[in-house]
Computed example of a mutant assay.
Amino acid sequence: MREQPEQQAPPVQRLRIRYAKRGRLRFTSHRDFSRAFERAVFRARVPMAYSSGFNPHPRISYAGAAPTGSASEAEYLEIALAEIVDPAAMHELLAEALPDGLDILEVVVSPGGSLADNLQASHWQIDLALDAQVAVDAVARFLAAEEVSVERMTKKGLRTFDCRGAVRSMSASATERGVRIDVVLVHGVPSVRPDDVLTGLAQVAGLDLASGGTLLTRAAQGVLLDDGAIGDPLA
């Protein structure tokens, strides 16, 4: 019989981490980031707890990753440790081990519970080279619609779904380069992404958004409060 693998000791501490994807590193895929983070953990000599089994791996839980190509100031993960550490010291070690553009913003002791359950909604900023009044009118049309169906290619093929139902709020304001659309998206199934909303916005208003630079930035992610604001998932 095959010898059973050694059972690993349970974690003694869990840390939750908020990090950012900035600049060119916004094109880092979730898989690329997870590899970079595991390398950083190894270089920083973090006392990770490991899973049991024939192929033990460091206990790292990811939740609510932003789509590839999107910048973000609110990405989250949780690590399980084999020793008690100082969160501030761990912040410094990980920040030094990761490349610029993948930036550690906050490290706290986990309050318990599920991190994913605290990531209920996201505040996205969509920067467009578009006339502000045109954007304001497009937002008004979008919000007035009961349903806005869009298509997206998924692993299971082309899928059609309503992107309007996931939008809790949306507004447009002028910027130096055009317009910024602020939108709060409720997480659900299927997951509605900011580019889906952009597709729906162009559809209901008859806009051509294919030309010109578009920057998608997640400004916040967390618990959806009664007033529509986003609560801190690390609190």
Rank of each mutant, 00 (worst) to 15 (best):
R24G: 08
R24D: 15
R24I: 15
R24V: 15
R24M: 05
R24T: 11
L25D: 06
L25F: 05
L25C: 12
L25Y: 12
R26Q: 15
F27E: 15
F27C: 09
F27H: 12
T28K: 11
T28Q: 06
T28F: 13
T28M: 13
T28E: 11
T28S: 14
S29G: 08
S29I: 12
S29F: 12
S29R: 11
S29Q: 14
S29N: 14
H30R: 15
H30N: 14
H30C: 07
H30L: 13
H30I: 13
R31E: 04
D32Q: 10
D32W: 07
D32I: 06
D32V: 03
D32Y: 02
D32T: 08
F33I: 10
F33S: 01
S34L: 14
S34E: 06
S34V: 03
R35E: 02
R35Y: 09
R35P: 01
R35C: 08
R35S: 08
R35G: 06
A36S: 15
A36R: 03
A36K: 06
F37Y: 04
F37Q: 00
F37K: 02
F37W: 02
F37H: 00
E38A: 13
E38T: 12
E38W: 04
E38F: 01
R39Q: 10
R39F: 06
R39K: 12
A40Q: 07
A40P: 02
A40C: 08
A40K: 11
V41I: 15
V41N: 03
V41D: 00
V41A: 04
V41P: 00
V41K: 01
F42M: 10
F42Q: 15
F42R: 13
F42K: 14
R43Y: 09
R43D: 09
R43H: 10
A44C: 15
A44I: 08
A44Q: 02
A44Y: 06
A44D: 11
A44M: 13
R45K: 10
R45M: 10
V46E: 08
V46D: 00
V46A: 06
V46M: 13
V46H: 02
P47E: 08
P47G: 11
P47V: 08
M48W: 07
M48Q: 11
M48V: 08
M48C: 11
M48R: 05
A49C: 09
A49D: 01
A49Q: 02
A49F: 01
A49Y: 00
Y50K: 02
Y50R: 03
Y50H: 09
Y50F: 10
S51L: 00
S51V: 02
S51A: 05
S51E: 04
S51P: 06
S51I: 02
S52L: 12
S52Y: 10
G53W: 04
G53E: 05
G53S: 07
F54S: 01
F54D: 03
F54M: 03
F54A: 04
F54L: 07
F54W: 04
N55M: 12
N55W: 12
N55D: 06
N55K: 05
P56E: 03
P56A: 13
P56Q: 06
P56I: 01
P56S: 11
P56M: 05
H57K: 14
P58C: 12
P58E: 02
P58D: 04
P58V: 03
P58Y: 09
P58I: 01
R59I: 10
R59T: 04
R59Q: 13
R59G: 01
I60L: 11
I60Q: 01
I60T: 04
I60V: 13
